[in-house]
Design a protein around this nucleic acid. Structure first.
Lengths: 198, 198, 198, 198
DNA sequence: GATGAATGAGTATTCATTCAT
DNA sequence: GATGAATGAATACTCATTCAT
C-alpha cells in the first residue's frame, strides 16, 4: 500500500467514525481534517467532495460486511444457520455496538438509508444463493426467491437494526421466515436461542 | 374557523406541497412565505420554528390518512377488502401522486421517516382491529397480531411506497399476507386484480 | 388610583423584576405581556416604547430610594450616621438582594448605568445637604462639597454595589471619607461595625 | 509578520474604529467586512465570533496602554509625575480624541465596561508599583496600597474619561490623591497646570 | 380601554469548495 | 503531495412596533 493510499484509508476511517457518531450532516469537513491533522487542500486532494467521500465510506463498510456474509455462505455449516449468519454479518459487532445505536438517531437517516439500499443489493444475492442451496437440499421450497429474500431483509432490518425487539417479534419473525421460504415448522426455531440480548 | 386559523391552514398546505416536492431541508422559510405572500414575522407568529411546522404538517397528513383508514375499517365491506383498503388509505391519492414520487428522493428521507413512524402508530391499531375481526369471523387465524401487522405494514411500505414493484413482488406479498395472518390460500388473491398500474 | 393607573403600575413592577433579573435587552415585550396576561396592543396603549418604559421603571426605583434617603436626611440621628444611612438607602433591601447581584451581570450594564447616573443626581444633593449640616455643626470641614460627595458616591457605588469587598476596602473607604470631608479621624469608624456581611 | 497575521491586524483595527465610533452592538459583521473588502467567510476564518473579536480588539487596546504605562513607570521622572503619567497613558491620544467621546455614548457601555475592568487589572499593579516606590522614597505614606490605587483609578476614570470636569473637580482630585497616598499637601499640585483643556 | 394579527428590517454564523503557491 | 487563505451563497430566527377592529 502506497503512502497516499494509507492516508486515504485513515481519512475514511476517521470519517466513518464521525459520520456514524454525529451523523453525516453534522460532521463538517473541518471536523475531519482537524482530527486527521491535515489541511483543507489535502482533503480535496483525496476526495472530490464530501458526498463522494460518504459513498466511499459506505462502500468500505458494505464490503466488509459482504465479505463476512460470503464467508458464511461458503462455509460448511447447516443451511438454516447460514441464513442467520448472513443476517448477523450485517450487524455491527463488538465495540461498534454503541455506534449502531447512533446510526438510528434522526440525524443519520440519510446515511442509514444509503447503507440499507446498498446492503440489499450486496447481501441480497448472497442470501438468495443460500436459499437456492436450501431448496436443492430440500429444506426450503419456494419460488420468486429474490422477492422473498428482499422481504426477509426488509423485516430483519426493521426489527433488528433498531436493537429493540421483543420475544413476540422474534417468534413472528421465525414463523414468517419458515413460511416465506417454505420450510418445515421448527426449521428456524433455533434462532430463538441465539438471540438473548434483545 | 377564525381568521388566524385559516391562514395557518393555508401555510400548512403550502408547506406540505413544498416539503414533499423539494424536500424539507431544501425548502426555506423564505420559499414558503414568498408563496404565501406574507412577512417573515407572520410566519413566526404562527409557527415556533420550521421544525415545529414540519411536525404540524405531518400531523395533518397523518390525521387525514387515519380518518380514511377508520372509515374503511368501520364500513361493511368484506374483511380482506378492508385490509387492502386500509393499506390504500396510506397512499396519497390523485394529484398527489407526483408528490409521492418525490417523497422518496434522497432529500426527503427525514420527512419520510417521520411519517413512516407515525403512520405505524396510527394505522397499526386500526389494522389490528380489522385482523381481530377477521379472526372472529374465522377468516384469519393467528397470534401476536400487532407484530404481524407491523411486518405487513413494513413490507407494504417498502414495496408500494416506492411505486416500483413487479408482479412477482405482488404475488409474494399476497402469499406472505395470507400465511402471516393464517388465511386460506386465495383469500387475498383479489389484490392482484386491484393493482394494475405498478 | 384609577383602573388604568393600577394596570400601568403592575406592568412597571413586572418589567422591573424582569429587567433586573434577565437584563433589559434580554427581556422582550412579549415576556412582559405574557406574564401580565395582556395583549401587545394593550402594552403600547400604556407605553410609547420599550425604552420609554425603562425610563419609567428606573424613575420608579429612584423615587423610592430618594424618598428613603430624604427621610434619613431629615431625621434626628447623628450626622455621620445620616451619611451612612443615605448610602444604605441606595442599596436594594431584603428580598431584592438576589436582584442586586443580577444588576451587575454583563447584560445589565445599560440599566445599571442609567440608574447610576440618575442616582447621582438625586442622592447627590441630599447627601450634600447632610455634609453641609455636618459643617455647620463643626463635624466636617471642607469646600467643594458637591465634588466631594460625587467622589464618595462613585467609590461607594464601585465598592458596595458589587457586593464584594474586603476589610481593607472598608478601612480605606473610612479613611478616605474622613479625609475627604475633613472629619476627625475615627468619626466614621463605626461603619466598620455596620458592615458584617460583605 | 505573515500574510494572515497582517490581515487579521487590519481587521482588528477596522473593527476597533467602528466599535468605538458606532458602538459594538451597532456595528454589524457586514459593516466590517465591507470596509475591509473581504468575504464573510474570510472574517470567520480569522475570528470565531463577533464577540471573540471584541475581546481581541480590547486586548489590543489594553496592551498598548499598559505598555505606555510601563514605560512611564520605568522612566527616571519624579514619582508624582509618574503617577500622573500612568493615568495619562490610559487616555486615548491625538486623533482618537473624537473616539473617546464616543466611548461614552450609551451604545458603548458594554465595551466601555469591559475595557474599564481590564484596565484596572493591568494598570492597577503598575500604579501600585509606583506608589511603593514613592513610599520607599518617603514621598508617600500609606498602607493598603492596592485598595487605594483602585479608588484612585475609579475616581480618575469617572472624572477624566467623560472628558467633562471642572476646576473644582481637579482641585478635589488633587486633594484626595495627596491624602489617599499620605503625601504632603502640594505634592500633586502640579497636576492643575497639566490639565488645561478640560 | 383592549385586542392580536401582521410587519420587515436586521444579523450572526456555517461550510463545502477553490486555487495560487 | 500538501498547504491554508479566501470565498460567498444560504438560512433560521428575533422583536419592537403598528393599526384596523
Amino acid at each position: 500500500m502506497k503512502k497516499g493510499e494509507r492516508r486515504k484509508l485513515e481519512l475514511l476511517q476517521i470519517a466513518y467514525r464521525k459520520f456514524v457518531t454525529a451523523g453525516y450532516e453534522n460532521t463538517s469537513v473541518e471536523d475531519i481534517i482537524e482530527e486527521a491533522g491535515i489541511a483543507k487542500g489535502t482533503y480535496y486532494y483525496y476526495f472530490e467532495s464530501k458526498e463522494q467521500m460518504l459513498e466511499e465510506v459506505i462502500g468500505m463498510m458494505i464490503e466488509q460486511e459482504a465479505e463476512a456474509a460470503r464467508q458464511i455462505a461458503g462455509s460448511l455449516i447447516p443451511i438454516p444457520q447460514k441464513i442467520v449468519g448472513v443476517f448477523a454479518s450485517m450487524r455491527p459487532s463488538g465495540e461498534e455496538n454503541s455506534i449502531q445505536g447512533a446510526l438510528h438517531k434522526a440525524e443519520n437517516i440519510l446515511m442509514h438509508n444509503k447503507i440499507r439500499k446498498r446492503l440489499m443489493d450486496t447481501i441480497g444475492p448472497i442470501l438468495s444463493g443460500v436459499v437456492e442451496e436450501g431448496i436443492a437440499e430440500g429444506i426450503f421450497s419456494c419460488d420468486n426467491i429474490p422477492q422473498r429474500v428482499r422481504m426477509l431483509l426488509t423485516i430483519g432490518g426493521d426489527l433488528f437494526d433498531e436493537g429493540q425487539f421483543t420475544e413476540a417479534d422474534v417468534a413472528v419473525f421465525i414463523d414468517m421466515t419458515e413460511k416465506l421460504l417454505g420450510a418445515k415448522p421448527g426449521t428456524m426455531a433455533f434462532i430463538r436461542d441465539l438471540i438473548g440480548q434483545g
